[in-house]
Simulated scan of single mutants.
Amino acid sequence: MKVRGKYVIYSLVLLVTGFMISFSYQIANEEDQRPTNDQWRREDQLRTSILSLQRENRKLQDELEGTLKSVNKMESQLANQEKKSFNMVEEAKKLRKVVGEVPVQGQGIRVSLEDSSYIPASENPNDYIVHEEHIRMVIHELYVTGAEAIAINGQRISHTSNINCVGPVVNVDGVKHPAPFVITAIGDSDVFWSSLNLSGSITDQLVDDGVEVRMEKEADVEIPPHIAREG
């Protein structure tokens, strides 16, 4: 019993000693891992630098976004100005075509009006020749159906051109033209053709008036600029 008691005491002493040694080792290890004042100072400086850089990055990012918005706004304004300028140029081109300041070329139609080749002996010859109103009828119909430019015997006319009969010839803005009167127009030739050949159209009226009418679609018509002349 005494021997066994010694063993128990020795065991307790060894156990306490081992515990103390283990505890001392753990404390020493934790102290080794605990940062020193210099380490704390360096880490604090590093955190401060990182925060400062983050603030500077956010500031630069905000400035960049503001600059990009300004650039996008300027680009949009420039695009609108370019579009307006382009539209103005195109509108000016159209106006120059309408008033006849520039030559025009494209598809179209050719309408030839001639005096009747047959005049009954008992009839008035003036009833079988082309008059100014016949030419005006054709020109009006061509304008209504989208003609960009019209010429009579190669002479460009405008919406304000003066057309009148002078005996057997027609005076167009002071220039006399004998029959046949060839009216050329630039535009959609199919539309012109359909409009002029409708039942009861002006073509039928011209034929009823004794005017000989010939029409041809043209793939390429060229009409010169309008030249103002004295009557």
Score class of each variant (00 low, 15 high):
L12H: 05
L14T: 15
L15P: 00
L15G: 02
L15R: 03
L15K: 03
V16E: 06
V16Q: 00
T17F: 15
T17D: 06
G18P: 00
F19Y: 12
M20I: 14
M20K: 03
I21Q: 15
S22F: 14
S22D: 10
S22R: 12
S22H: 12
F23Y: 15
F23I: 08
F23V: 12
Y25P: 02
Y25Q: 11
Y25S: 09
Q26N: 12
Q26E: 11
Q26C: 01
Q26W: 09
Q26S: 05
I27R: 06
A28L: 05
A28S: 10
A28F: 10
A28C: 02
A28W: 11
A28T: 12
A28Y: 12
A28Q: 08
N29Y: 11
N29E: 15
E30T: 04
E31H: 05
E31G: 02
E31L: 05
E31N: 06
D32N: 08
D32F: 09
D32K: 13
D32V: 13
D32P: 01
D32G: 02
D32A: 07
Q33L: 13
Q33S: 00
Q33A: 05
Q33K: 03
Q33H: 09
R34I: 02
R34C: 00
R34D: 03
P35T: 01
P35Y: 02
P35Q: 02
T36N: 03
T36P: 01
T36G: 05
T36W: 04
N37P: 02
N37E: 15
N37W: 09
D38L: 08
D38P: 01
D38M: 05
D38G: 05
D38S: 11
D38F: 06
D38N: 04
D38I: 03
Q39P: 00
Q39T: 04
Q39Y: 01
Q39W: 03
Q39E: 15
Q39S: 04
W40C: 00
W40L: 12
W40D: 07
W40Y: 11
R41G: 09
R41N: 11
R41E: 13
R42S: 13
R42K: 14
R42G: 08
R42C: 06
R42E: 15
D44G: 02
D44Y: 03
D44I: 06
Q45L: 07
Q45C: 01
L46I: 05
L46Y: 06
L46Q: 08
R47I: 06
R47H: 02
T48I: 04
T48K: 07
T48Q: 10
T48S: 09
S49L: 10
S49C: 06
S49A: 14
S49P: 01
I50S: 02
I50N: 01
L51W: 12
L51N: 15
L51P: 01
L51C: 05
L51T: 13
S52I: 09
S52A: 14
S52R: 07
S52L: 07
S52E: 10
L53A: 12
L53M: 14
L53N: 13
L53Q: 14
L53R: 11
L53H: 07
Q54L: 11
Q54A: 14
Q54E: 14
Q54V: 09
Q54D: 13
Q54I: 10
Q54G: 09
Q54R: 11
Q54C: 04
R55P: 00
R55W: 08
R55F: 11
E56D: 15
E56K: 09
E56T: 12
N57L: 04
N57A: 09
N57T: 06
N57Y: 07
N57E: 05
